[in-house]
């Protein structure tokens, strides 16, 4: 049954690490069929936000809903509706990619034939065929990233959360991933992707959210963000929005 609710709603999310306010009253939404770029300098709070959405940490305040289901109230239902690829994939080094995909399919209770079909599609699409029988510990960074992406596609969730997904990928795999995300958006599914590659964000994302020091600094389409700044690129906008004031001499 397809939900009419947006794949991701975050309202007033706040999270601290001790005295450090990592995410400060952040609200954002990923609509159906939208690819949203999540941009910010290092330490801006992107990974914390994504981990909170994935259920890996419990925020100090705020509400997160995945495809209409509140993560705090119904964590299992919400988790079933998302797929999360962290910056360092959670893989079992002593399994092969095929064994790992089988295990993840079991976790999400994907019917065997459907899981097998989707796994085969991903293996072929991401060119994992040569590595399918090798132990993951022997795979390169890029291969590991591809395996992690293939795993979250198994249960075809309404929302994908991707933290720096292009790290280590070769140009062909980058193209494959971008095509795949566009196809998912065309099917009405949502994607929140954190990246430092502003050119990719500009070309791939329907909308971008820029955060700095845990606070949202700007939100809109790349075109709208550049509006009124003749000749400016998204990079110029990003640098202007995330510049810290010079300390007083």
């Amino acid at each position: 049954m397809e939900s009419a609710a947006p794949p991701l709603e975050i309202q007033s999310l706040t999270h601290r690490y001790g005295d450090l306010l990592a995410v400060d009253d952040l609200s954002l939404e990923v609509g159906r069929g939208e690819i949203v770029g999540f941009l910010g300098p290092n330490g801006a709070g992107k990974t914390t936000t994504l981990r909170a959405c994935a259920g890996l940490l419990v925020p100090h305040a705020g509400r997160i809903a995945i495809a209409g289901v509140a993560l705090a109230a119904q964590p299992l239902v919400a988790r079933a509706r998302l797929g999360f690829v962290p910056d360092e994939p959670f893989l079992y080094d002593r399994l092969t990619p095929v064994e790992f995909l089988e295990f993840v399919a079991a976790l999400y209770d994907v019917p065997a034939d459907l899981a097998a079909r989707r796994a085969e599609e991903s293996i072929e699409r991401f060119d994992l065929t040569s590595a399918r029988g090798e132990l993951i510990e022997t795979c390169s960074r890029g291969m590991r990233q591809k395996i992690a992406i293939a795993a979250v596609l198994l249960h075809d969730p309404p929302l994908l959360l991707l933290d720096e997904p292009l790290t280590g990928l070769d140009p062909q795999a980058v193209r494959t991933l971008k095509d795949l995300l566009r196809e998912r958006a065309a099917r009405g599914l949502g994607v929140l992707v954190s990246t430092h590659l502003l050119e990719v964000a500009e070309r791939l994302c329907d909308r971008v959210v820029i955060i700095h020091h845990g606070k949202k600094r700007a939100e809109g389409t790349p075109v709208a963000l550049r509006d009124g700044r003749a000749g400016a690129t998204l990079e110029d906008v990003f640098l202007a929005l995330t510049a810290d004031p010079e300390p007083a001499p």
């Binding site: 092969t96 095929v98 079991a106 994907v110 097998a116 029988g133 510990e137």
Partner: peptide, 14 residues
């Protein structure tokens, strides 16, 4: 490093 011997390459979900 060679993969496990007698490895299965077909995906089979349990």
């Amino acid at each position: 490093r060679a993969g496990p011997r007698g490895r299965r390459l077909r995906v089979a979900v349990r």
